[in-house]
Design a protein around this nucleic acid. Sequence first.
DNA 1: TTGAAAGCGCTAACAC
DNA 2: GTGTTAGCGCTTTCAA
Lengths: 333, 333
Amino acid sequence: MGITTKELAKICGVSRTTVHRALTDTGRINPQTKDAILKAAKDYDYRPDLLARGLVKGQTFYIGVIVLDVNNRYFAQMLNAIEMEARKHGYFINIALHENNKAMEKEQIIRLADYRVDGMILSSVNQGQEYKDFLNSFDIPIVTIDNKVAEGIPFVGIKEREAAREAVRRILEKGYEKMVFVCPPLSDRYKENIYVHEQRLEGFNEAMRQYPDREAVVIDKKDNLKLCAGQLEDSKRTAFFCSGDIFALELMKYLKSKGLASPADYGIMGFDNIDTLEYVTPRLSTIDNSAEQVATTAVNLLFELINKEKTETKRILDFAIVEGETITAQAET
Amino acid sequence: MGITTKELAKICGVSRTTVHRALTDTGRINPQTKDAILKAAKDYDYRPDLLARGLVKGQTFYIGVIVLDVNNRYFAQMLNAIEMEARKHGYFINIALHENNKAMEKEQIIRLADYRVDGMILSSVNQGQEYKDFLNSFDIPIVTIDNKVAEGIPFVGIKEREAAREAVRRILEKGYEKMVFVCPPLSDRYKENIYVHEQRLEGFNEAMRQYPDREAVVIDKKDNLKLCAGQLEDSKRTAFFCSGDIFALELMKYLKSKGLASPADYGIMGFDNIDTLEYVTPRLSTIDNSAEQVATTAVNLLFELINKEKTETKRILDFAIVEGETITAQAET
DNA sequence: TTGAAAGCGCTAACAC
DNA sequence: GTGTTAGCGCTTTCAA
């Protein structure tokens, strides 16, 4: 690396402490010596070793971000927003992926802690009391997003249940006779954190209860494309409500290969409003859960925790229904 | 944080060196004392301070990754691949965005260097001799991707020119009478690194020269959607060749709003083969530049440089033309 | 206004 | 086998 304060001190004929004072502009110091030191620092292109500084100050100005993977549009949008918001505060980010693997998530968190990040933002696949204890065992502020780990852990999310309920209501108002809720296997609770999907399912069920004349189906199997397609075999007017845009897109693609298109043959609604949708026809109806807003809110909450400002540790944001072209009123006969 | 080697030493009644030996499994040590130390380490949940280790070893096991932003599909795919490949080698990544801002790119690089990353992967907006000197002023290996900064700087990319040439040839074989090459403003050379676009343009020109009977148009203006649409006003059979899928998608969207669709009204080809295309109809013809492969190649090249293995510092990968539905043979009259 | 000395937590050279 | 000592580059008392 470059030059150190020690060498600068020798060059300027002063002590390291004086150099430090000049560089950090603290304490009393003779303006002339200060100028001389600053000039030398510039000439020799001095730059502080951030590791050393972090070691002694116990603060690195890094926040760790742990998510599933970056390939997912939702996380990519999130990440971008987190980086920008963090940078505004003079912080940088350290990204770690857990690939939906509980053990890997733990390892990544441990490593980030060992690297002394000042805080973390975590989209967890783990949950429960035991994991809560694990997270609390670090004396580092951690803000969770998307999936709730447990009560008491700082969390930023949206009103998942209300969003689902509202969406289903709107769909049913359009006269669909059958509603199919599609999500990842809920029985995988022991394998991953399916908090958001459970919440959305609850919202779905709540809304369906108010329309007892309509048929409700839940598909949470692994290989669900075929199962979904099967739902279209009766003559009922059917709509799919997918817990995630990606899955909605996959389903539309699959159904298209079978010669079926929305909105003519089926209704479909997603969740997330990922930006891929801009380019897809027909425009998918979906729910905007404002990844960017969740991201910036999480970062700001994290900073409040880092700075030990007293603060509410739970922030639930609003959602917005995005009317696309895949949910339509009953066609005239 | 947790317990330190110093405290462990006191607990076990040995010196710090012995603790270190037990922990790192180096040097001669009595198996019994070792076991005792390891047990204590476990009981007290000892974990090494990675900052301190990095400081003394001069190695952090981090690589810095500097890209435009993560929202771009291409970079997201890239990043994911980089993270995974790095992790395989026991390394982690530190992400920094430059947002197409030359100065910010420099700042980010400096900061990563100050944090003593062991190497960097850089998709640069800068270029030229001066910048080359800047990069070389760090004694940290840096591998550039996408855009070439200057000869002599380690670089991983694909055969951009050949790819463009081949693509144009294939398009022309389908009988299109007019070819429009679309890319960002090439006059912005002073503002950003437009290396890949220049390469592709060259390939375009080379191919066009072999078909003197066809009309060639280049559009590299900022607000080019309208200009592109204007190209369809004559009655010629026209194909667009866009230097980037995103722009192709934007153009298709725009033209659709004007009531024009591919392949009936125009041909269009992209570049990158981003995964968004999977969900878009019609399937865009494009060129696969294998973001993942570039990523893993770059990481591996970087490790060779870090480990000072003698190595070629330039790796140019192959491309593949992806036949979609937006380039078709002349319709029968 | 300046400097000496100690310490962050780890590793490494050398002596016993 | 084990311990002593020194050092990475920075910050922070405390004393002059």
